[in-house]
Simulated scan of single mutants.
Amino acid sequence: MNATTRDMHNNICVVTGAARGLGRCISETLARAGAARVYACDINMAPAEAWLKEYDNVTAVPLDVCDSAALSRLSARILADHGRLDVLVNNAGITRDALLDNMTEADWDSVLNVNLKGVFLMTQAMLPLMKLQQSGSIVSISSIVGTDGNIGQSNYGASKGGVISMTKGWARELARGGAQIRANCIAPGFINTEMTQAVPQKVLEKMTARIPLGRLGEPTDIAEGVLFLASARARYITGQVLKIDGGLVL
């Protein structure tokens, strides 16, 4: 058994936004790393039907991260099945891009609800399961837009910057009394996902030209960062923002 396989050995994990893209890759990476159970959550799990068949340690959970009652039911289910939670990955997120002049109130509200409120509600619902053992790792997916901003993404940047601020507060709050509950963020740059693949080729070329390492990131680049922060290898790391962007923001 290699080191990667041992990283999540016997861990109980929850991943949101897990049906496809980054969430799928994160879920698969945790499963391959030896997790006892990965609860792969998404508002629409249909895109995951094929890849879920490859893993007997992944459970699909249709879930809206803004539905407090559904989050409570999931928490109760995990408590009954396992009595604890070791890893929470807050990955679910949406975009509704527009220049400030054109951004609607609905654009603002929908992004802030999923990307910020959803992270708050999910973490609040899962936290009691970590407190039972006074340990655990919370990894939230932010963005370089949350650290450095971007044209046409006022709502997205605010939501992802808010995730960073919450995470830093949680790192202090959840370690009180000697607890080993850690909270960290990952801030991806331009990643080769379905969303990026829809961008016109000329725009992609301009994006790539700005990246010192000369390529878009792959979902595995982010998933490996999540695996590190979630594992005992990062046991002395909390309250941090790990940028995985090929050097785009220095």
Rank of each mutant, 00 (worst) to 15 (best):
C13M: 09
M126P: 02
T29I: 06
Q153E: 11
S135L: 00
S154F: 02
P128M: 06
S137Q: 10
I144L: 10
L216F: 15
N57K: 04
T4V: 14
N155A: 14
A69W: 13
N184E: 12
K117P: 01
A230V: 07
I78D: 07
E49G: 00
A158H: 04
V111W: 10
I12P: 05
V226Q: 12
D148C: 01
I151W: 13
A183K: 06
L132V: 11
V65F: 12
A33H: 15
D81A: 07
A46K: 15
N91V: 03
N44T: 07
V163S: 08
T167I: 05
S154M: 08
N155H: 15
R32I: 07
I138G: 01
G178A: 07
D245P: 01
F120T: 01
G246H: 06
N115K: 02
G157D: 04
G214F: 06
G169S: 15
A18E: 14
A106P: 00
D56H: 14
A198H: 09
E105D: 12
V241D: 08
V89T: 05
L129S: 04
N115V: 02
K160R: 05
T29D: 14
I141C: 04
G189Y: 09
D148Y: 06
R210T: 13
D97H: 04
V114K: 04
R176F: 09
G152I: 10
L127M: 14
S137G: 03
I138M: 07
T29H: 09
S143L: 11
E173K: 01
V15M: 12
L88V: 06
M1V: 13
V14H: 15
K206L: 10
G189L: 04
Y55Q: 01
A179M: 13
A183N: 08
N184W: 13
W108D: 08
D56N: 14
I191E: 06
S72I: 02
L121M: 15
V163P: 05
K168V: 03
A179W: 13
G83L: 10
A48T: 12
I237H: 05
M195D: 08
I144R: 08
R37L: 04
N10C: 00
K202F: 05
G189P: 02
A80T: 13
A230G: 13
D221L: 03
I181N: 11
V163R: 11
V58N: 10
L71T: 11
V226W: 15
L85Y: 14
S165C: 08
V114P: 03
N192Q: 09
D64K: 03
L79A: 15
T123H: 04
D86Y: 11
A234Q: 06
G239C: 06
A70Q: 14
N44R: 14
N2F: 07
V241N: 10
L71F: 12
A80H: 14
L129F: 10
Y39C: 00
R77E: 15
R32S: 09
G118V: 02
I138S: 02
S165Y: 11
E205I: 00
S72M: 07
G178S: 10
A50Y: 14
D107Q: 02
A125K: 06
A234P: 03
A35C: 05
F228C: 01
M166H: 08
D107Y: 08
N150H: 10
N102V: 01
L242D: 11
T95S: 12
